[in-house]
Write a protein that binds this DNA or RNA. Structure first.
Length: 649
RNA sequence: GCCGAUGUAGCUCAGAGGUAGAGCGUUUCCUUGGUAAGGAAGAGGUCACGGGUUCAAUUCCCGUCAUUGGCUCCA
């Protein structure tokens, strides 16, 4: 009997009932048949050799697709489990999924055994030798009792616990070689596809993420079809290590931490502070143009403020403890958010519907007691500055304001060369609308407004249901950095809760009081986190307009120090700054050091330059601009700066 | 917060039960230089902190603190 198989391009293939994705791939091209790893049949994951018995939509996945990669890595996790069972008989297995960049498996080695990274080579070797056996992955539907019996006999209580949550009739085993695992699949056709393996690290992980339960050993790895791909991946990891903002921050003297000052409290060094100030001034200017009003609010607030905002109830116990005063019962808290203060700013006067939107902006420093194990460089700290603003708008203005904020965020991203990003729209959980505050009508409208705004701006969006905060839907910007890693940066959030709690009002056309909608937004997110991401994105080679120093002057010898000073002063008049390297070193040496320090322009001055009143300019990276008058250099610098920050959307 | 690893000079790191080493940087001197490391000499360390074992601990053991890989969390 024939069935119809439709492909994503609309083509329909007639095939024998019981055919499989691999067969279909063969009819399309030999190359595809060689590379196909998994498939989906009517959007259900499907092994490539699993029979297809009815009309369906078929998608074929190779390593270039997320689905293909995940399938490949998931199969690699099974392969690792097989190797581990061989090398460590009697181990118990937890879960072993594919992740964004590889796979892991959680294992319980028993009390007296340990694995360290020193053991990786022998595990990798065993995996490769098992892979070379080209064992096929065999899928088997199994009833629940049989499955439980299997793991009982094997002595693996973890799998039995997993089985508890599964419905009989929906349970499958996969077997390759001597290894059988409870698994939904899909898997690659045989282990022979796995040609290059690297185990990366090892860590403890609680069974089911519950710290009251057994801690298992989690082994992370990555695998590829070709050695070359593995090498490239490892090189990327090396590059990421080189760009680590903690390392570059130290090398370039941007920021530091001090045990004495306290964990997670960054100290911005002069160069880092210069960089950050430039970013802040840049955004301040953009916000001024977009109609924001500056406000400044204190670093602490009375307990009552946070009781009113609801933050006290939710976070009071788990955060920095209150500051007491000589007054009985008076308590202040370090501010964990700027919004309560901004609400009070709003309340300082009356608004008509014609006054809205009102936009209050502040680089507000906040303090949150993050768990000590969570602190990480500048990306996760206990004291940080948000590029915060709160927009108080009428419900009918939500969409327009979203568009305005999106424009601002796009402007920021473009100025900083973040070219690749997507936005996530977080909406209510459709099933459980009761857990959200605010009227059905407002939510409905705001959600639609956000969707429409992103459509209008032609953004690449993903919608996540159930990811909205209890107080409103939101839009998050995730940028991809130069190494392809994703970071969540800017955010725009609608809030119905705070206007309610603070009883914010404006007078409408109807002369009645109305409640404004509040929009929180931060294009950078926090200065700390943003600078960290920026450092890793550009590897410390900041865009010229942000670089703490734009040039370094290298006098050929001591005789030209005066001329160097003169050039430096001249450039300073145009806000182009940098030092003079007056060390008694050779020019080659000074060039090398300047290159290593990532300074954008190197200016060499010697006899020729002084005589002709010129400078010789070399760009970071080795490109010679040549012997030019200083004015010409100023023009070059100004032009390069303008290119990134002066444009209209 | 939990589990593992780490903590030696400003930085990157080696080292061993018997009072500490390299490279880079820094200082001084020589060299006055033309596009990715010129030469020489010197300074610099309670080996994170607190206990214990030992004739002797920076090294072994325990605790604390910090960093770090994860887990959990993230207004």
């Amino acid at each position: 009997m024939n069935i119809n198989i439709s492909l994503p391009d609309g083509k329909v293939i007639k095939a024998q009932q019981g055919t499989c994705a691999l067969e279909i791939a063969k009819t399309i091209s030999e190359g595809l048949a060689r590379n196909i790893l998994s498939a989906s049949v009517n959007n259900e994951d499907w092994d490539i050799n699993r029979p297809i018995n009815q009309d369906c939509c078929l998608k074929l996945h190779t390593f270039n697709d997320i689905e293909g990669k995940k399938c490949f890595w998931h199969s690699s996790a099974h392969l690792m489990a097989e190797a581990l069972e061989y090398l460590y008989p009697g181990i118990k297995l937890g879960i072993g999924p594919a992740i964004d960049n590889g796979f892991y498996y959680d294992v319980d080695l028993g009390d007296d055994r340990k694995i360290s990274s020193d053991d990786f080579p022998k595990i990798e070797e065993k995996m490769l030798s098992l892979a070379r056996e080209k064992n096929s992955f065999n899928r088997k539907e199994i009833n629940k009792q049989e499955a439980i019996n299997y793991f009982k006999q094997k002595g693996d209580e973890y799998k039995i616990e997993l089985l508890d949550d599964l419905i009989d009739g929906d349970i499958t085993f996969y077997t390759q070689g001597n290894f059988t695992d409870l698994c939904k699949g899909p898997h690659i056709d045989n282990t022979g596809r796995i040609k290059a393996i690297k185990l990366l690290n090892i860590a403890g992980a609680y069974w089911r993420g519950d710290e009251s339960r057994k801690q298992m050993t989690r082994i992370y790895g990555v695998s590829f079809q070709k050695q070359k791909e593995l090498t490239a991946h490892l090189e990327m990891l090396e590059e990421a290590k080189k760009r680590d903002h903690r390392k570059i921050g130290k090398e370039m003297e941007l920021f530091t931490f001090s045990k004495k000052v306290g964990q997670g409290l960054p100290l911005w060094l002069p160069k880092g502070a210069q960089l950050r100030e430039k970013l802040e001034n840049f955004l301040k200017k953009a916000q001024e143009n977009a109609g924001y009003l500056p406000v400044i609010t204190p670093h602490i607030g009375n307990k009552d403020l946070y009781v009113c905002s609801g933050h006290y109830e939710k976070y009071g116990e788990d955060s920095f403890q209150p500051i007491k005063t000589p007054q009985e019962n008076e308590e202040f808290f370090l501010k964990p958010m700027n919004c309560p203060h901004h609400c009070e700013v709003y309340k300082s006067k009356q608004y008509s519907y014609k006054d809205l939107p009102v936009r209050f902006a502040e680089f507000g420093t906040v303090y949150r007691y993050e768990q000590s194990g969570e602190l990480h460089g500048l990306t996760r700290v206990r004291g940080f500055t948000q590029d915060d603003a709160h927009l108080f708008v009428r419900p009918d203005q939500v969409k327009e304001e979203f568009i305005n904020v999106i424009d601002l965020v796009l402007y920021v991203f473009r100025a900083l060369s973040f070219k690749d990003f997507k936005v996530q729209i977080s909406l209510r959980d459709k099933e459980n609308k009761s857990k959200y505050i605010g009227s059905e009508e407002n939510w409905e409208k705001a959600e639609q407004d956000i969707i429409d705004a992103t459509k209008e701006k032609n953004l690449n969006t993903v919608i996540e249901y159930g990811e909205a905060a209890f107080y409103g839907p939101k839009l998050d910007f995730m940028v991809k950095d130069a190494l392809g890693r994703e970071w969540q940066l800017g955010t725009i959030q609608v809030d119905y809760s705070l206007p309610e709690r603070f009883e914010l009002e404006y007078t409408g056309k109807d002369n009645n009081k109305h409640r404004p909608v509040m929009i929180h937004r931060a294009p950078f997110g926090s200065m700390e986190r943003f600078v960290a991401v920026l450092i890793e994105h550009c590897g410390g080679n900041f865009p010229l307009w942000l670089s703490p120093e734009q040039f370094i002057i290298l006098p050929i010898s001591e005789k030209f120090h005066d001329y160097a000073e003169k050039v430096k002063q001249l450039l300073k008049n145009y806000d182009i700054c940098g030092p003079i390297d007056k060390r008694a070193e050779t020019t080659s040496r000074k060039i090398r050091d300047a290159e290593v320090s990532k300074i954008p322009f190197i200016i060499v001055v010697g006899e020729r330059e002084e005589a002709e009143e010129k400078i010789t300019v070399r760009k970071h990276g080795g490109k010679n601009i040549g012997n030019i008058p200083t004015n010409e250099f100023i023009e070059i610098v100004k032009k390069e700066m303008r290119e990134l920050i002066n444009f209209t959307n």
